[in-house]
């Protein structure tokens, strides 16, 4: 049992983080062309709505929920100190979790019942779907059966994750948790480890820059005012249009 705990709660996280970092950086720097959300809306534009929209809003809310619980455990506990507020938080989170699951199921049905999507579906899509579904179902199971996650996350999981990130892994507390919780933890790291090899990379290139950039973009290969001056030094660097 110790052996398994050590593997899934210590070795796997480090392995996953290493693969995630190296893989994503490698892919971003040398396989840029393959960075894409790979939208399939062009081939099927109706059913996607019932999948993509609930799934994405769900996953984003749930993801930020986890992130906040990890980064600001104190404030989450303070919020939860009143039962009503705890209930509100838990129920909203649960609803977003359900929305994510419903979206996912719709996405899977859409992808495997639409003939036109088969040429743009690969094994990795299947793996992503399966992992995400397992992860979501486990998450919902925990939320329902092992209450109240938003509170015990801050006392149990935050220290564990913190210990992982500070290279001082401490699993004494988490190894006592029931197996679905462990599955949820391990699942997260499995997803992280396949992350660079899937379409999931699209979430890293979320175009927030768009919010503050001017609408129009004009690019010169060279500084056009300087290019005419004989004092401009020659450069071998090719300017990039990014």
């Amino acid at each position: 049992m110790d052996y398994l705990n050590n593997f899934f709660l210590i070795a796997l996280p480090y392995l996953a983080l290493a693969i995630f970092l190296i893989g994503t950086i490698f892919r971003y720097t040398s396989r840029k062309f393959q960075f894409s959300s790979l939208s399939s809306q062009f081939l099927e534009g109706r059913k996607l709505f019932y999948g993509s929209v609930p799934f994405h809003w769900g996953v984003i809310f749930v993801f930020f929920g986890h992130l906040i619980a990890f980064l600001f455990p104190g404030s989450v506990l303070a919020w939860n100190s009143q039962p009503l507020r705890l209930m509100i938080l838990e129920i909203t989170a649960f609803i977003f979790g359900i929305s994510m699951l419903v979206g996912l199921i719709n996405l899977v049905i859409r992808r495997y019942t639409t003939a036109r999507l088969s040429p743009v579906t690969n094994k990795m899509d299947l793996i992503v779907y399966v992992l995400l579904i397992i992860q979501t179902v486990a998450g919902l199971w925990i939320a329902y059966n092992f209450r109240w996650g938003s509170s015990w996350f801050s006392t149990l999981l935050t220290p564990y994750l913190y210990s992982i990130f500070t290279f001082n892994p401490d699993i004494t507390a988490v190894s006592l948790l029931p197996w679905p919780v462990k599955l949820h933890i391990a699942g997260a790291f499995v997803i992280l480890s396949i992350f660079p090899f899937t379409r999931l990379v699209h979430m890293l290139v979320l175009p927030l820059n768009y919010l503050w950039r001017p609408y129009q973009q004009v690019t010169w290969y060279w500084n056009r005012k300087k290019v005419r001056s004989s004092s401009t030094p020659w450069s071998l660097q090719r300017p990039e249009n990014t």
């Binding site: 840029k32 894409s36 699209h202 950039r213 129009q216 973009q217 690019t219 249009n241 990014t242």
Partner: peptide, 29 residues
């Protein structure tokens, strides 16, 4: 150009040709 969230589309200053940088496009469509 104005609609592209990734900023993949640009107008070339020298001759005004509008291009999509294939390495920056992320299919936000």
């Amino acid at each position: 150009v104005a609609s592209c969230p990734s900023g993949a589309i640009y107008k070339r200053g020298e001759d005004g040709v509008v291009l999509i940088n294939q390495e920056v496009c992320r299919a936000w469509r």
